[in-house]
Simulated scan of single mutants.
Amino acid sequence: MHHHDEWLVGVTDRGVQDFFCRGARRQSTEGRVILIEPGEMHDGQAVTAAGFAYRMLYVPQSVMRAGLGDPAGGAGGFRQTISDDRQLAVAIRNASDLVGESGERLGAEAAIDAVVDRLRTHLGLRERPVEAAGGPEIARRARERLHDELASEIGTDALARAAGAGDRFQLARAFRAAYGASPHAYLVRIRLAEARRLLARGEPPAAVATACGFADQSHLGRWFRRAFAMTPGAYRAACTDVPDTGTARR
């Protein structure tokens, strides 16, 4: 038996995850979500020889307080230890994929914030009210900062401060209201637009990745294929007739 100082939010990917919590043994199977608040004693074990696989986010209390708009820390506890909330499971997996990945700081922080926001119903909290004052101006300043620092690895907290938002959660709501997307989605969009421009000019994909703020050529390739269903090299060749060899034809 042990406990953690953070909020535990996880999803079982495979097998049966057996654990004791809140006075009873519980079992989580594929796709089910595990929710454990700070200080809650629990253990964990497999019940079959095949074992189990899971993803667990350890969300700091400071992030939860900021995201829930609960500076006093009175969020209480989760209504249930195991949930079948599929949207939350998807959000956890998305955050797990992005956390720690080079070039995805803004996306990772946004993904964690999406998890926190989804947890409101599991804590019995109402939706956070939308702040109307200054919203359009906050969004505009954030948009300008993204364009000015397109290749930089800017975080959501720094972006919120630059835009004059109270915190990154206010920034996210203001930005979505103004532009219909999160700051991260918008940043990816303008990075890809710049990448297309440079590739059409004949620049090598590796150089384009660096110039547009992607971690490396592979990172650019994943986003480019997702958006345009083709590789950066293929797009460059289609625009310039330059084969994807890394050097431009003289």
Rank of each mutant, 00 (worst) to 15 (best):
His42Ile: 03
Phe20Trp: 15
Arg14Gly: 03
Pro38Val: 00
Gly15Val: 05
Val59Arg: 01
Met41Gly: 06
Tyr54Gln: 11
Ser62Trp: 09
Arg55Met: 06
Ala46Phe: 04
Arg55Trp: 02
Gly31Ser: 09
Phe52Thr: 01
Arg55Lys: 11
Pro60Ser: 03
Gly31Trp: 02
Met41Lys: 02
Asp13Thr: 03
Leu57Ala: 08
Ala49Gln: 13
Ala49Leu: 09
Gly15Ile: 02
Leu57Asn: 09
Met64Glu: 05
Glu40Tyr: 00
Ala53Ser: 15
Gln17Asn: 08
Pro38Asp: 05
Tyr58Ala: 12
Val16Met: 07
Pro60Cys: 01
Ile36Cys: 09
Thr29His: 14
Ala49Glu: 13
Ile36Ser: 01
Arg22Met: 11
Val47Tyr: 02
Ser28Phe: 00
Arg26His: 13
Gly31Met: 05
Leu57Met: 06
Cys21Ser: 15
Gly23Glu: 10
Ala24Pro: 02
Pro38Gln: 04
Gln17Phe: 12
Phe19Trp: 08
Tyr58Glu: 07
Glu40Lys: 05
Gln27Met: 11
Glu37Ala: 15
Glu37Leu: 00
Tyr58Asn: 09
His42Glu: 07
Ala46Tyr: 02
Gln61Glu: 15
Gln61Asp: 15
Val63Trp: 11
Glu30Phe: 04
Ile36Phe: 04
Val16Leu: 12
Ile36Pro: 07
Asp18Gln: 11
Val47Arg: 11
Asp13Ile: 05
Leu35Arg: 09
Thr48Ser: 15
Gln45Asp: 13
Asp18Glu: 12
Tyr58Pro: 08
Arg32Phe: 05
Val33Asp: 09
Arg32Leu: 06
Val33Phe: 10
Asp18Trp: 06
Ala50Trp: 04
Ser28Thr: 10
Met41His: 06
Pro60Leu: 00
Phe52Tyr: 15
Met41Cys: 05
Cys21Lys: 00
Phe52Pro: 06
Ala53Lys: 12
Val16Gln: 12
Ala50Thr: 10
Tyr54Pro: 01
Asp13Glu: 15
Asp18Cys: 12
Phe19Glu: 00
Ala50Phe: 04
Gln17Met: 13
Val59Gly: 03
Ala49Ile: 00
Leu35Gln: 09
Arg32Pro: 01
Gln27Phe: 05
Gln61Cys: 07
Asp13Gly: 13
Ser62Val: 11
Arg55Glu: 11
Leu35Cys: 11
Pro60Gln: 03
Val47Trp: 05
Arg26Phe: 04
Cys21Asn: 00
Pro38Thr: 01
Asp13Ser: 06
